[in-house]
Design a protein around this nucleic acid. Structure first.
Lengths: 190, 190
DNA sequence: TAGTATACGGAGGGTACCTCCGGTTTGCAA
DNA sequence: TTGCAAACCGGAGGTACCCTCCGTATACTA
């Protein structure tokens, strides 16, 4: 049922090539222009017609999600590494800070995408879920260590962090972002 | 230098009437459709041409700010009332919750507008400043009572609250909003 | 190499934004 | 009251972006 299965019949070579070109163009466009990319520009940068772009990514959202997929996967991987850290609380904080860094450093759309609702089973949904679960491990560990208040849920924390990123999207005041981040961290602390 | 002074020469009667009609239409449009109102619809609802709308409100932002002006003023007034409360902490929390309620209950654009940069001296900027200062009184009082951590700044708290509202703009899960709000409150608590 | 499923691309229709300017209305002065 | 200049109105139209549709081109298969 997953999209990976749907590619059982391999794509034509040109289609595969264009898919990758579009994604690459979209990535750099999102990095430098944020979430309100002009899709026609992406197509042009990719050396592809607008129709081709829309065939591969039926909606604007689909393209942005694809752009964000790598990031979601890396966040999961990082969480799993951090789960081996000695200090449970520091590990959690590091992971959360990573979300802020990712969000601010170009991929400002990440937060918006992450906080949106996705079709169950979509690649991005799966990746986000996995990332969230990995984060949840960090959270629970910190709670077991008595360093994070009981009752705090990973979804709420993440959503708050993403909100923080979103509102500081363009031209962020890094000092303020830092203080707001600290505010959130204080909020979860036991 | 304020806009109020600029109206020294009174507007023509029809201009005044249209100004108010447009504002009224914009308000109800924003309440039911959020920040991405279609300005042409607003003009039609106001019984006015699109050109007239743009003369009174040169930019989309200007219209939204005008829409939000009352809210900003009321938030200030509420803060000043709450400053008389017995419990400083409760007063602050009530005021912050008010921001969430206002933000969620239709005026979902409020947060976005509030968190944007405005021209110094503009009506909205003045109103926001006043509101923020009134809120700051509540915060300082709670800090003096030892109920809020020292070092917490009103700007950071408000921005975080507005971020919260923004990210829960359309179809908010009220229970989650509540939990996120609690998270913020815990974050400022001494 | 020929046939076919697949993919390409851009013209074009739709929506919303904002500007511009000819025509109209209003308020004031005589 | 009447005339006039300033102020105002309204919508046509240019721009930008979105997304769809379908005739043409291309890559795979036999």
């Amino acid at each position: 049922m997953s999209e990976a299965d749907a590619v059982a019949r391999p794509r034509r070579a040109d289609a595969q090539r264009n898919f990758e070109r579009i994604l690459a163009a979209a990535r750099s466009a999102v990095v430098e222009r944020g979430g309100d990319v002009v899709l026609e520009d992406v197509a042009r940068d990719a050396g592809v017609g607008i129709g081709t772009l829309y065939r591969h990514f039926p909606t604007r959202q689909a393209l942005l999600e694809a752009t964000f997929l790598d990031e979601a996967r890396e966040l999961r991987a990082r969480a799993e590494v951090l789960a081996g850290d000695i200090c449970a609380f520091d590990a959690l904080v590091s992971w959360l800070r990573l979300q802020v860094d990712f969000g601010l450093h170009g991929h400002s759309m990440g937060a918006a995408v992450l906080s949106a609702k996705h079709d169950t089973g979509s690649e991005i949904q799966v990746a986000c879920s996995a990332s969230r679960m990995a984060g949840n491990v960090l959270l629970r560990r910190a709670q077991d260590a008595g360093e994070v208040r009981a009752g705090v849920e990973i979804d709420d924390v993440l959503r708050l962090i993403h909100a923080l990123v979103l509102v500081n999207g363009t031209s962020p005041d890094l000092a303020q972002v830092e203080r707001m981040f600290d505010l959130v961290i204080s909020g979860i602390r036991a």
